[in-house]
């Protein structure tokens, strides 16, 4: 019986993942902007999703000037970040990562979660993997600073495929097969094989979040914002365009 239910859920999940793709991304890209990985607001199509300390809030923004709150869902405690990829929301909290389906945009439904006993910061994802940084200091006795990569092909049961120690990782961003991680400096990993991520380059800046849009890289830290151009043909060719002192 249990297997039957699982099969049913799987069929539902994978059945939709093909339909939702293109329209979702395209319409979202066209008229909304882009935040960093620490964002707690995201617009997907005609809906604004936000997370606060404990809940996911859903606003209908069909009329963009007149948002209407349509739903809120309790998720957990100390919710921090919200990331959308295709028909899923990835929610980062101090306790772990939660995945919700927004196939029905006003009624997000729980898909799966991964729990940690420590601080867990942002999560981002692509078609096959979710990337999470865990950053903690003395707050609860732990001193865990990790980059974790989960295989989400089977999205109802994310599987940890890689875990590597870092210094103090925070914001993360994907540039094709390259993962940018804001650590004690910005570390760039080739994640073509997510089981064995390889450090290929670094940028000597201590920052806490990143936006990557096309070939534009934006870094934000306590003392400045920095913009760079990236080169997909040569990941080491990173040119500083401008900086804003803070």
């Amino acid at each position: 019986m249990k297997n039957l239910i699982l099969l049913f859920v799987l069929t539902l999940t994978f059945g939709c993942s093909k339909d939702g793709d293109s329209s979702n991304q395209d319409s979202a890209e066209a008229n909304t902007g882009q935040g960093g990985s620490l964002a707690s607001f995201t617009v997907v199509g005609d809906y604004l999703y936000t997370v606060d300390e404990s809940s996911l809030n859903i606003f209908n923004v069909i009329n963009s000037e007149q948002p209407v709150k349509v739903n809120d869902l309790p998720i957990g405690f100390r919710i921090e970040t919200l990331f959308n990829f295709r028909e899923y929301l990835y929610i980062g909290s101090r306790d772990g990562m939660f995945i919700y389906s927004i196939e029905n945009p006003e009624e997000p439904s729980y898909v799966s979660d991964v729990q940690h006993f420590t601080a867990c910061d942002p999560v981002i994802a692509n078609e096959t993997h979710a990337f999470v940084t865990l950053h903690s200091n003395t707050q609860c006795g732990n001193d865990i600073n990790l980059l974790e990569i989960y295989d989400i092909n089977h999205i109802v049961a994310p599987a940890l495929v890689s875990s590597r120690n870092l210094t103090s990782p925070k914001g993360i961003g994907l540039y094709g097969d390259f993962l940018f991680v804001c650590d004690d400096e910005v570390k760039i990993f080739n994640v073509t094989n997510p089981v064995e991520s390889v450090l290929v380059h670094s940028i000597n800046k201590e920052v806490f979040d990143v936006i990557i849009k096309g070939d534009l890289l934006i870094l934000i830290g306590d003392t400045g914002l920095y913009q760079y151009s990236l080169d997909s043909g040569n990941i080491e060719n990173i040119q500083l365009l401008s900086s804003i002192a803070i």
Binding site: G33, A39, D209, I211, K213, I220
Partner: peptide
């Protein structure tokens, strides 16, 4: 002081 960033 700096916080989150957004590009549109």
């Amino acid at each position: 002081a700096s916080g989150k960033i957004y590009l549109k």
